[in-house]
């Protein structure tokens, strides 16, 4: 269980408060208007954004200060790969951050790359990859890090709709394989519908407790309705 207790972040005019819990193994979409603090919520969980007050726990224990020591893998909006390192090195960082890899480690890197459909691309540099391939490399590293909590900060925002759906499907599979708890920031309610069990709505300086996806789309609170533009047809798709 991920527990955020009375957490508060203040940066100048901006305030975000959160007091919520996420069950292990859930897939949660983080929705809300831009600038509301969706990315800040993730940064706070990942340890990049120090709390003004409050505490974040995983399985009942307070999370360590160092982001690398937290039980978390994170995929960012961009800059997920170091451009000067090869694909294999970028993935290898998930095993050892000093990159002193044994031959066993290198086999694991190859296997992870094969799992995300990038067998044979080990020696490439990120500049030689497409946007979708870059996202796959980042996910291969997530596989090797094998942390119980996976945070995705709008990782596929720059991809086209077809590729995006493909990547979401891959995330779905990987989360199932690693039994990871998933939190994903998205601008696109469709992503939430496709992937998530629950939705955390971030608006008005507050991250609300997760609500089942079907429920929230069935009966959207005002803030979400406003954000979505009030199109009922879109909000209540037939398959929900």
């Amino acid at each position: 269980m991920l527990t955020i207790e009375n957490a508060r972040i203040e940066m100048g005019d901006f305030t975000l408060v959160a007091d919520l819990q996420v069950q292990e193994g859930k897939r949660v979409a983080v929705l809300g208007p831009s600038g509301a603090g969706k990315s800040t919520l993730l940064a706070m969980i990942a340890g990049f954004q120090p709390l003004t007050s409050g505490v974040i726990k995983w399985r009942g224990a307070v999370m360590p200060d160092d982001p690398a020591d937290r039980p978390i893998s994170m995929v960012f909006q961009d800059n997920n790969l170091f451009p000067h390192l090869t694909v294999a090195q970028n993935v290898g960082l998930g095993i050892r951050p000093d990159l002193r890899l044994t031959s066993d480690d290198k086999k694991r890197v190859e296997a992870a790359l094969a799992r995300v459909g990038l067998a044979g691309k080990e020696a490439r540099k990120p500049a030689q990859l497409s946007g979708g391939q870059i996202a796959r490399v980042a996910l291969a590293r997530v596989l090797l890090r094998d942390r119980p909590l996976l945070l995705l900060d709008e990782p596929f925002g720059a991809l086209g709709p077809a590729l995006r759906a493909e990547m979401l499907a891959l995330v779905d599979e990987l989360a199932a394989e690693t039994q990871a708890t998933l939190l994903m920031v998205s601008h696109n309610p469709e992503d939430a519908r496709l992937l998530s069990d629950d939705v955390i709505l971030v608006e008005g300086g507050q991250a609300h407790a997760p609500v089942p996806t079907a429920e929230i789309f069935e009966n959207p609170p005002d803030a979400l309705r406003e954000y979505l533009g009030g199109d009922r047809h879109y909000l209540v798709p037939s398959d929900l």
């Binding site: 990942a46 990049f48 160092d66 982001p67 690398a68 978390i72 893998s73 390192l85 090195q89 951050p97």
Partner: peptide, 21 residues
Amino acid sequence: ALADGLGLHGLSRVRLLWLPR
């Protein structure tokens, strides 16, 4: 943030991130 998240500290950060970039 990426380097912090991966635990790229100290000399590893110098060698793998700073010097090349």
